[in-house]
Nucleic acid binder design. Structure first.
Lengths: 200, 200
DNA sequence: TGTACATCAGTGAACGCGCGTTCACTGATGTAC
DNA sequence: TGTACATCAGTGAACGCGCGTTCACTGATGTAC
């Protein structure tokens, strides 16, 4: 391939930045390193991104889409509204977060917020709302009327998000050595759902 | 006061760094800025800290102690092992995290881990283990035998930590506008405890 | 009590480095005629 | 089909900046005699 006219440099830069983040385990990669990895000069990225923030936001968007895909795929294997499906969603989330630790700070930091804002329609339609749908179906079947599905989904999300966050930097391991975070996810989800049903 | 022999520069630098973090809402403060705020030259901090990381770890230790104090104080007002006490612990945690947003990334990042390791005895004796004690008392009173107090406490912690984390960067507000995170904390804690008791 | 001196905690200037970004340029591509 | 030219996406060199850290130094303090 020729030096000039790379063809798909925009995507190549997003991939390069994502790989660097993954490899180094940190989200502060430099523009210059991303350029180097993509095989272009320092200045080339500025034809495709206004500045470094814009590149990182683009990486965030890709990451959010990957997360949505992971949770959607996991939930597709189960019947809608079953505890099994909700648990599968949680597991997929936990797996994604712990499997890509360096993306955590990026996705839930400032760049993540802006990425969410720019592409909200596409992102909002998946991920979290898959969980809301599932919770809604569960509530319908169990004839729970006094609980708001969005509210319940948010609480479940917080639970899974919290476990993932703690598992990330070995805080759990430091505080309670030998913890099995997947077992914790499973039992806490069951406890929570049991509490939900007990109010019926 | 004289230029030479500040007297308590070590602490002054920790406070200066903490204030800068608080004001700027970001944990990447520079050594030079911390020096300036403490009223000393660039080189002075190196008499008290090996490098920048050492200073930030010291800030972390102070932050963890403040958090522990906040949760301990909150829980002291309630009878041990009551749901009210557990909820109070959660509220204090949530309040601390959302009240000092910039410390979050510092405390739960690499510096926080090292701060925990160096001063573990003092830190481990408070904070999380206050919650463990409370959960243990609750389990004893309710005659729950098949649940491990540490495990239950971890799940509750994850729930509160997750809610705090989501509340921090307005992710909740973005996704579910008008959310009252304290109400969410209260109802999710109750739901979880109800689930715990229903297994009896 | 007075003096010599070791030590301690500051100074301020400087170094080197890496980074984000810009700028004039250049070569390849697409298009009008 | 061939040529002139606008446009587009690269280059590479350079800029300015801020930062972490070091170094020879200096002034204050504490101590031995």
């Amino acid at each position: 391939m020729n030096h000039y006219h790379h063809g798909d440099l925009r995507n190549a830069l997003i991939v390069a930045a994502a790989e660097l983040i993954e490899e180094r385990g940190s989200s502060d990669v430099s523009m210059i390193d991303a350029s180097r990895r993509a095989g272009v000069s320092n200045a080339a990225p500025y034809r495709h991104f206004k500045d470094k923030d814009a590149l990182l936001e683009a990486v965030c968007q890709v990451a959010f889409m990957a997360l949505s895909e992971a949770t959607d795929t996991a939930s597709a294997a189960f019947r809608k509204g079953t505890p099994e499906q909700i648990l599968a969603l949680g597991k997929a989330y936990l797996q994604f977060v712990t499997g890509h630790p360096a993306f955590y700070e990026l996705m839930w930091g400032d760049h993540g917020i802006r990425a969410m804002e720019t592409d909200s329609a596409e992102l909002k339609s998946s991920g979290f709302y898959t969980l809301v749908d599932s919770v809604q179906a569960l509530c319908d079947e169990a004839e729970i009327k006094d609980e708001d599905a969005v509210s319940v989904a948010t609480k479940l999300w917080a639970l899974v998000h919290g476990l993932s966050s703690l598992a990330l930097n070995d805080h759990l391991e430091k505080l309670v050595p030998g913890t099995d975070v997947y077992a914790l996810l499973e039992s806490s989800t069951h406890t929570f759902l049991a509490g939900l049903l007990s109010k019926r």
